[in-house]
């Protein structure tokens, strides 16, 4: 593509990561991520795909500086990620985790407002109070309207459905006003209507504000439709990185997922569409 001098949103180089004892033997557990190298341009939507245990979630957590890699470097808009204070990272990058178990009865509003923490943590000062200002409330309210949880504002996060909680957490991520949004299975708990909603919100934020999006998904079709590029992982290594047409071929998918798939074209967009084989009866 274009030869750029622009700063990448992420430059990942030779990334290696494993869970376990930092001083201990790594070969026992093996590398969860084994030598990843890729770039993400600002304003891109990148989908990370791969079978269970291929290291997708670990990769997202490393990009949010929640986990630390053992080897390799990650640069966020040109800055070395590991050298940045956590709150600086949190102002640029928001992570929507796969699962959120919340034990305490915060209201949805309080939950969403937590996204302002990296912005107003300086106001917290000596007293430890740090009240949210009108600007914080305005941002949170806009995010809640966008993700359709404003009518749940007063409800406790422990009392709403899984999909509502997920939307609230996406609202919290938007409230961080990040430049990069990392999502781990954002649509897993959502019904069709809200899946579509979230996808179009992501696309709109991407187009209007140039938000960079990196999302992990098991939903190959959703990734194909909404992502500019796809990163296909298997056992911690890159299998393919490219446009949906390049990655979503029967040969590549069958090699990685170890099962037969059918790939045709989406009737509207013409992008690749993946289907599992039907019953033998229809083949006969």
């Amino acid at each position: 593509m274009k030869e750029t001098t622009e700063v990448h949103a992420y430059s990942v180089d030779g990334l290696r990561f494993s869970y376990g004892h930092p001083g201990g033997s790594r070969s026992v557990n093996g590398w969860v991520l084994d030598g990843l190298t890729f770039d993400v341009r600002p304003g891109e939507i990148v989908g990370v795909l791969g079978p269970n245990g291929s290291g997708k979630s670990s990769l997202l957590k490393i990009l949010a500086k929640v986990l630390r890699p053992q080897e390799g470097s990650v640069r966020l808009f040109g800055r070395e990620l590991l050298g940045m204070p956590q709150h600086d990272v949190a102002r640029a990058v928001a992570l929507v985790p796969q699962e959120s178990q919340i034990a305490f009865p915060f209201s949805i509003t309080e939950m969403v407002l937590m996204g302002r923490f990296p912005h107003h943590r300086r106001n917290i000062g000596l007293s430890g109070l740090g009240w949210e200002g009108p600007e914080d409330i305005r941002v949170a309210e806009a995010a809640m309207r966008e993700t359709d949880v404003l009518h749940l504002a007063h409800r406790s996060i422990t009392d709403v459905s899984g999909g509502e909680r997920q939307r609230a957490i996406i609202a919290r991520a938007l409230t961080q006003e990040p430049k990069v949004l990392l999502l781990d299975e954002p649509t897993a708990f959502l019904d069709l209507h809200h899946q579509l909603d979230i996808c179009s919100i992501l696309r709109r934020l991407n187009q209007e504000r140039g938000l960079t999006v990196i999302l992990v998904s098991h939903d190959l079709n959703l990734a194909s439709q909404y992502c500019d590029r796809l990163l296909l992982l298997d056992r911690g290594r890159t299998v393919r990185l490219g446009f949906p047409e390049e990655v979503m071929t029967p040969e590549v998918l069958e090699e990685v997922y170890r099962c037969r798939v059918l790939v045709d074209r989406h009737p509207q967009s013409g992008l690749p569409r993946v289907t599992l084989p039907g019953r033998p009866m229809t083949e006969a």
């Binding site: 957590k61 949010a64 500086k65 929640v66 204070p85 956590q86 709150h87 600086d88 990272v89 949190a90 102002r91 990058v93 928001a94 992570l95 985790p97 959120s100 178990q101 919340i102 034990a103 305490f104 915060f106 309080e110 937590m114 996204g115 923490f117 990296p118 943590r121 917290i124 000596l126 007293s127 430890g128 109070l129 740090g130 961080q176």
Partner: peptide
């Protein structure tokens, strides 16, 4: 203890979420 109150709010979300929201966990 009280000075940590705002951080404690975020820590109840789990350490990873707290860290991703900018808390020095």
């Amino acid at each position: 203890l009280f000075r940590q109150a705002a951080s404690l709010n975020l820590l109840t979300l789990g350490e990873e979420s707290a860290r991703s929201l900018g808390v020095d966990v």
